[in-house]
């Protein structure tokens, strides 16, 4: 009984965190699923977003304006990865790792040479804060996060329906065909990476306000959480949701489920130090399931032929 009460208590927090990380996971979805590129920049660019946001708010900026700048910083990070990949011939995965590594130093500089900068909700007019996650009034971050997620999904639904967005999707779906239809695949890959990392940095900006600080290490393992959200959403709801907007929604739902599962695991008494290990294991299993399924199918077919 006690277990369920404390779990219920933890639900709003899990939902809020899930939505913040869900925005990041949508960024991962754009590269991993739409562009078919594994981009590891995100571990760095989410911290960049958080760092930019925190430092600007501390300098007295309006939080929304600070978040716009955080988005722009992420777009720049994506541009660097895109240029390394598209114009220097570096494989995408390595280009992302290089940018991610470089961003560690950049983020330290943004944070004024410190590994951590606090951002108290008592001193600054933050948009979201963990402290009010169970509050019954308008300071509660949940309604705003739902709204932000909805706006992000609708904006992306619109963008990927435009001629430019279609060109990005075609680039990811079949680059050779895209080029033969006059699409500059290199340019659109870079554009996709920029958009993706912009969203990731925006999520970092929300995250830093939500937890009341920016940390140079806050992005460690972000790509894994992003992939976990994408895959959990697909496995559970992929058959149901075909529409692009709904697919983006499943990514956020996947992130929320991820955090609820995490809460349950923690309530069961697991050590927080083991979190990354558990996350990696969950992602590995969910990535393996489709592979196992297809192999099982082949075996069955072979068996069938034998009997026939």
């Amino acid at each position: 009984m006690n277990f369920f009460v404390s779990l219920l208590n933890a639900l709003p927090g899990a939902a809020a965190q899930g939505m913040v990380w869900g925005i990041m996971a949508i960024g991962v979805y754009i590269t991993f699923r739409v562009l078919d590129v594994a981009d590891l920049t995100v571990d760095g660019s989410i911290a960049t977003g958080g760092a930019v946001c925190v430092m600007l708010i501390r300098a007295g900026w309006n939080p929304w304006l600070a978040m716009v700048c955080a988005f722009a910083a992420g777009v720049l990070a994506g541009l660097v990865t895109g240029l390394l990949h598209g114009h220097c011939g570096i494989p995408a995965i390595l280009a992302g790792i290089l940018t991610q590594l470089a961003l560690y130093s950049v983020n330290l500089r943004i944070l004024g040479g410190k590994a951590n900068q606090a951002l108290s909700v008592d001193k600054y007019p933050l948009v979201v804060s963990q402290r009010f996650v169970r509050a019954g009034n308008l300071t509660n971050p949940l309604p705003l996060l739902v709204l932000v997620c909805a706006v992000v999904i609708l904006a992306l639904y619109w963008f990927f329906g435009t001629e430019k967005g279609c060109a990005i999707r075609a680039t990811g779906a079949n680059a050779k065909m895209a080029r033969s239809q006059g699409i500059n695949t290199r340019r659109y890959t870079i554009l996709g990476l920029m958009l993706s990392n912009g969203l990731v940095a925006l999520a970092g900006a929300f995250l830093s306000q939500y937890q009341g600080s920016a940390d140079v290490g806050m992005g460690r393992g972000a790509i894994v959480i992003g992939l976990a959200s994408v895959i959990i959403g697909e496995v559970l709801l992929g058959k149901l949701f075909r529409n692009f907007a709904l697919r983006l929604a499943t990514v956020i739902i996947g992130a929320i489920i991820y955090y609820i599962v995490l809460q349950i695991v923690l309530q069961l008494g697991l050590n927080t130090n083991d979190l990354k290990l558990i996350s990696a294991a969950i992602v590995a299993v969910f990535l393996a399931i489709p592979y196992w399924k297809s192999h099982a199918g082949i075996k069955k077919e072979k068996g069938g032929v034998k009997h026939a």
């Binding site: 963008f159 329906g161 435009t162 001629e163 430019k164 967005g165 279609c166 006059g182 699409i183």
Partner: peptide, 8 residues
């Protein structure tokens, strides 16, 4: 042709 922000 130029691909812009018109609906695809």
């Amino acid at each position: 042709k130029h691909r812009g922000l018109r609906w695809g």
